[in-house]
């Protein structure tokens, strides 16, 4: 795993979403609501969860699958940092 900092996490997640999401609009920013703005659908969420677990070496629990952790790039970064600090 590469050394992580805030910009790293956001950049990695943004790149993943732009490459794998269903909306190729480049207006994606850190606070864009990924599901409301159609960047990710159901399968996109699954794939994102799997990607985040592998990329940042974290293990998700059932209670983690909530809007607060996945709704935007900002939210994902907060979630990843919290998981890393706990693990």
């Amino acid at each position: 795993m590469t050394q992580l900092n805030t910009n790293n996490i956001k950049a990695i997640v943004r790149k993943y979403i732009l490459e794998n999401g269903s909306n190729d609009d480049n207006s994606l920013d850190d606070s864009t609501l990924l599901f409301q703005e159609n960047y990710l659908d159901s399968i996109g969420l699954y794939s994102l969860i799997t990607f985040i677990e592998k990329e940042f070496n974290i293990i998700s629990k059932d209670v983690d699958f909530v809007e607060e952790n996945y709704e935007s790039i900002d939210a994902i970064e907060r979630y990843v940092l919290t998981k890393i600090s706990v693990q």
Partner: peptide, 24 residues
């Protein structure tokens, strides 16, 4: 406000259930 997340549940021969989120 998230798409549905599917769980897989298995039931062993004694009726004990285990569930996990299904990877994509």
């Amino acid at each position: 406000n998230l798409p549905p997340i599917f769980y897989l549940t298995i039931v062993d021969p004694y009726g004990k259930e285990q569930s996990k989120m299904l990877p994509a």
